[in-house]
Amino acid sequence: MAGSVIVITSGKGGVGKTTTSANIGTALAHMGNKVVLIDTDIGLRNLDLLLGLENRIVYTIVDVVEERCKLKQALVKDKKNPNLCLLAAAQTRDKSAVDADQLKDICEKLKKDFDYVLVDCPAGIEQGFQNAVAGANEAIVVTTPEMSAIRDADRIIGLLESKEGVEKYRLLVNRVRPKLEKENAIMGVDDVVEILSCDLIGFVPEDTNIITSTNKGEPVVNDEKSLAGQAYINIAKRIMGEEVPFLDIDTPVGIIEKIKNFFMKKA
């Protein structure tokens, strides 16, 4: 069975593509899938850092393309989960070191042995984006509820539609702040979906745990208490085809509420 190649893209930088890739990848691997993450952000790699695999990288995607090593040698296995692998980007080169056909070739090869090939796309719509999208048959467009991110996402969706091979694309709204949303200070998830008229795969609430997890090199899905981690797990389930209701983040969780819930559960 050939796995699916999913590209995680956004157009705008800093909306959370890499964080999303790391967390969805880890979540999918936890659920028993064989997952490989490809970092295509050559020259500005970060995915290795988020997974805490920085010190294990010897060969990179550029070494594979330039035939200094075999593809399988370049795959770095995750510390905790043997189902998860990383194909790292080279830090000392730039996007032009790899072209779209070569990346497509790599995706085709990996598809045979892995259930999910997640491609972390760099920001922008230049060579890096073209490379990342080349082998994909599915896309996740990450955006935040801000006008600039939405406009870039719109552009990306337009490019994806015109791209052959990408069968479906879904929207992920990142850094949702329900409190501000209620005060009508920012756009809500529904507004974003309406503007972009695109299927929603899920949204992820703003979570400060993300920052600490990035610094520690451990994806937030490993943290059961984290709301963002929960959201990513749900998204991973949706990728696998499960029907999962969207996360309810509207319920205010105060001390009284928590105590109530505690006793309710016991009873």
């Binding site: 695999l53 399988k72 040698q73 043997p82 692998c85």
Partner: peptide
């Protein structure tokens, strides 16, 4: 050593000498 636990085990793949 950089190569003890890092790479995919050989039995998952065809025989490849990592590193």
């Amino acid at each position: 050593k950089a190569y003890d636990e890092t790479q995919i085990e050989a039995d998952q793949w065809e025989e490849v000498d990592f590193y």
